[in-house]
Design a protein around this nucleic acid. Structure first.
Length: 381
RNA sequence: GGGGAUGUGGCACAGCGGCAACUGCGGCGGACUGUAAAUCCGCUCCCUCUGGGUUCCUUGGUUCGAGUCCAAGCAUCCCCA
């Protein structure tokens, strides 16, 4: 590749009444229409689904995780086997998360230093893993994703002020080191805004990233870590809606449930990812316009209806009934989790496609209101 | 006909004098947000439920107290004729 790939982001339409916008993100493996939901394939697989199925669902970009792949089987092996795309048989764009979230999820086993972070890989062999921004970039480049995320520190909620500030400082410092260490021209590096629920800290974090370099996109990390929906939007809404650069994609990391996606688009978010559709699917839960459905519940035992009456996913359109899926889930048959993964992933992809259409039509506010009404107070998060 | 073994909550299995009874399965419900997750957490004899009632094949007995010890009966399984 002689020419550095231009990771441009074109805004196609902006909603007149909200901060929602529709755009296109250009990557070496194809264009990504936004707003978009990105299915998560941590260990180089969207659990339970063939890449072709993921593509057929309408997915335009998927995730993988540098921490997990570095642990097993190792980034060198993936590179040796031709890189992530060839290896996992996914031709579209791939975004790799850095492992900052894994550091957070390892809780007590983590030691942060200025140089990096050391923690016990209790999810593998219990060995101590040291992670530096430079090593993180090296792995991301070996994997060969289209977009990689900086190494960051993701605090939980609630979080004391001192740690929150430290998380912002370290994330900023590490962003700069990632920026310097990153070399692949066909891979975009996104910075990550931290700062918890504090808008001022968020703005400080954002300003540092903007001063540091011309990041092709920005992640917003550290949300959906235990706070309520309202607490989240109190700082997220002004951050995304008023302060983040207009011409760069905004990626709300780790979110989420359908309602938050719809509201998130309304405050100006372009990209989302979440394990929820595939994880809850394997546990027997389905998304629907009526809220979440637990297919394990006995009420579905003899229900001949599909999960969604008008759903176009392979499970619903394929004629699989709630009764049958209830049976599969109760018997722990693989197909149960697969059908629900197909359904849930379709649901979020379709939800964002519907959102995009509404933005293009200039009626996103009405779309949001309709979605809220359809849920009719029922819980989906 | 003779000998041996076993009977515990929907099922399987523990319990060897203080037990409303271990554990697993099953059943019912809940949680899940940049995947330590096909995982995890409750509840699962009855009731007027910070208490009360009735339980461990049946009946009788020993004991302050019995699922646990004794006797008889019933049932099931195995072996030999």
């Amino acid at each position: 590749m002689s020419q550095p790939f231009p990771f441009t982001f074109d805004i196609v339409a902006e909603d007149p009444a909200t901060h929602a916008r529709a755009g296109v993100l250009h990557t070496p493996h194809g264009d990504v229409p936004t707003p978009i939901f990105m299915p998560v394939g941590t260990k180089a697989t969207v659990k339970g689904l063939m890449p072709s199925q993921v593509a057929d669902l309408g997915a335009k970009i998927i995730l993988a995780n540098t921490y997990h792949l570095a642990m097993r089987p190792g980034a060198e092996l993936v590179a040796q086997m031709g890189g992530l795309h060839a290896w996992e048989r996914w031709d579209g764009p791939i975004l790799t998360d850095s492992g900052g979230f894994q550091v957070f999820s390892h809780g007590d086993h983590v030691k942060l230093t200025d140089d990096g972070v050391t923690f016990r890989a209790v999810d593998y062999d219990g060995s101590y893993v040291t992670w530096t921004p430079e090593e993180n970039m090296r792995i991301a480049e070996l994997l060969g994703s289209d977009i990689c995320m900086q190494l960051d520190v993701c605090p939980g909620y609630p979080c004391d002020r001192a740690f929150l500030e430290r998380a912002v400082d370290l994330s900023s410092a590490w962003a700069e080191r990632c920026w310097r260490a990153h070399t692949r021209p066909d891979q975009a590096l996104f910075g990550i805004v931290q700062g918890g629920m504090d808008l001022d800290l968020r703005l400080l974090s954002l300003r540092r990233l903007e001063e540091m370099g011309d990041f092709p996109g920005y992640g917003i990390g550290g949300y959906s870590v235990g706070e309520s929906h309202d607490v989240m939007f109190e700082s997220l809404a002004p951050l995304a809606g008023e302060y983040m650069p207009r011409h760069k994609p905004r990626y709300l990391m780790g979110v989420g449930n359908p309602t938050t996606l719809v509201e998130g688009v309304g405050v100006g978010i372009d990209m989302f990812d979440c394990v929820l559709p595939t994880r809850t699917a394997r546990m027997g839960t389905a998304f629907s316009d009526e809220g979440r459905l637990n297919l394990k519940n006995a009420c579905h035992r003899a229900d001949p209806r599909p999960i969604g009456e008008h759903c176009g996913c392979p499970a619903c359109a394929g004629g699989f009934s709630r009764s049958y899926i209830h049976h599969l889930v109760k018997q722990r048959e693989m197909l149960g989790g697969i059908l629900l993964s197909l359904h849930n992933t379709w649901y979020l992809l379709d939800l964002m496609a519907r959102a995009r259409r509404a933005i293009l039509d200039g009626r996103y506010a009405a779309f949001m209101a309709e979605y809220r009404d359809r849920l009719d107070g029922r819980r989906d998060f």
